[in-house]
Structures are given as structure tokens and as C-alpha cells.
Design a binder for these strands. Structure first.
Lengths: 127, 127
DNA sequence: ACACGTGTATTAGTAACATAGTACACTATA
DNA sequence: TATAGTGTACTATGTTACTAATACACGTGT
């Protein structure tokens, strides 16, 4: 059961993103234990060192805490996890807006395009 | 006058993006001549071969046409340029929406977040 | 004490990117 | 025809980020 990765983006970033999303969606909660680097590496079909990089990054971001010999755990700091959600939201939104505006789209066009995609085109988006 | 580049993204992609945005914003029009690879390399502070890669990619995307000995020109095909605008718009929007939804945000939350960023927080966004 | 599972550190290899350099082919102009 | 400017192709080199392989250190349970 090997997971698939987008070849244009580093694997470790993709695993990191997956874990962050699991946290934000509530699939991983404060204090939950993450799989060991070796287990995660098996599941993901990558080298344990690649997973280690992910866990190191999670620790740097204060999303997880690692205990040598024990494993890595999602932080118990609920405020931090709440902040992660808000950070992800505002970063994704603001970089999207910045890109759109730099490309030359007006605020009205941006908003209407988002609304359309969200509520109108959902059923007809075959691709 | 050397342009700056974001170190986490390949230089050629950034130049490509800049040119596409200039087209979409109307700063470059159908039939306009692009600087020679040597001139653009000077302006951008990069190797001509890097610019050559950009122009090759522009041609592949049918955004520009190159004539050996003459230079590279934005395509005269207005329909293609219009399509480029729509493609950029829909790609940016749909990937944004996909990311937001995968992260766990609801359509309502997404739309409200975008509206806020566009219309309410503009003045107070100090960072 | 030993075995096992854990994280950690280090080294090696590789792909992608970027540069530098060079030479060729084409076009326009004097 | 010569010159200057254009794109094009190719080779060699260097750098960086990423990934894998391997071994070490720590913690827990028996």
C-alpha cells in the first residue's frame, strides 16, 4: 500500500501537507501519536529519513513533539493547532489573492470566479 | 538593473510567469516583440540559455512565436491569448479551491475568507 | 542485561536547475 | 559582401535540494 506523490513537488513537503491537513480536519488530535518514522516510511513507500525530515519540520512548526525512543506526537497545545488552522487558511487565501491580482484579475472577478467554482460548477466539472 | 527571483522556484518558471502576467494584464499585446534572449538575459541578470528556455516554453504553450534571426513575438492569435487568460484564471481558482477543501474548509468559509481578504482587510494588512 | 522499537545523525547519490562558453544558422542593413 | 543582431544547439561544469542507505543513541519492557 504505497501512497502516490506528485513528481513536481518534494515528497517530504507532500507528507507534511497531508499531516497538517489531517490535523486541521480533526483526523489527528492533540496528543495523538504519529506512526514511527519506519512505519510511516513503509506506508508511504519512502525512506525513513524522508519521514524524519517531515517530523523534524513538524517539530520546528510546533505542530508535533518528538520523544526519543518513544515516538512523535501531535502537540497537546490546542491553541497552537487552532492557530495552525487559521494560519493555513490565511496563507492560502492571501497568496491566492496576491497571485490573482498580480495576474491582473479584479477583486470582483476573483470573487465571482470563486463563487462559481464553489457553488455552480461543482456538478459539471468533469475533468 | 537585475531582477530578483524567489529562490524556492526555478528562475525560468518565474520569468515565464512574469511574461504570462504581462500578457494577461495587457502590457504585452498580440504581435509584440519580446526582447532578444541576450537582452532579456541582461535585464533579468541570468544566462541567455535560461531565457532561451523560457522562450521555448512560451512557444510550446503557443503564447509566442519565434522567428530565427528575427526574434520572438507574442502570438497574433487573439483567441489564444484570451484563452490563456481564462486558463490561468480557472487553474488558479480551481487549485485554490481544491487545496482549501482538502485542508478541510467549507465552501462558505472559503468564500467568506476570500471576500474578507479582498474587500475588508486591504487597509489593515500590514505584513 | 538483553531485545526491540524509537528517534537521530551522517554520508552518498541523483535529478533538476543554472551557468558559461562556443559555434552555427538565419535575417536585415549598409 | 561584411557586419550586427537574432535564435538554436550543444557540451561541460557547478550548485542545490532531495532522497536513500546506514549506523548510532535512547527508551521501554521482559
Amino acid at each position: 500500500m504505497v501512497q502516490s506523490f506528485n513528481p513536481t513537488q518534494p515528497i517530504y513537503l507532500q507528507i507534511l501537507q497531508r499531516i497538517c491537513r489531517q490535523v486541521v480536519r480533526g483526523e489527528l488530535k492533540a496528543g495523538d501519536k504519529l506512526p514511527s518514522v519506519r512505519d510511516m516510511a513503509l506506508q508511504a513507500g519512502v525512506n525513513p529519513n524522508t519521514v524524519q525530515r517531515v517530523y523534524t519540520e513538524l517539530e520546528r512548526l510546533e505542530i508535533a513533539e518528538t520523544r526519543r525512543g518513544l515516538g512523535s506526537f501531535i502537540t497537546e497545545n490546542e491553541a497552537r493547532l487552532k492557530q495552525l488552522r487559521e494560519d493555513l487558511k490565511s496563507e492560502q487565501i492571501s497568496s491566492f489573492i496576491a497571485d490573482m491580482e498580480e495576474t491582473g484579475f479584479s477583486p470582483e472577478e476573483i470573487l465571482e470566479g470563486v463563487r462559481k467554482d464553489l457553488f455552480n460548477n461543482k456538478g459539471g466539472r468533469g475533468v
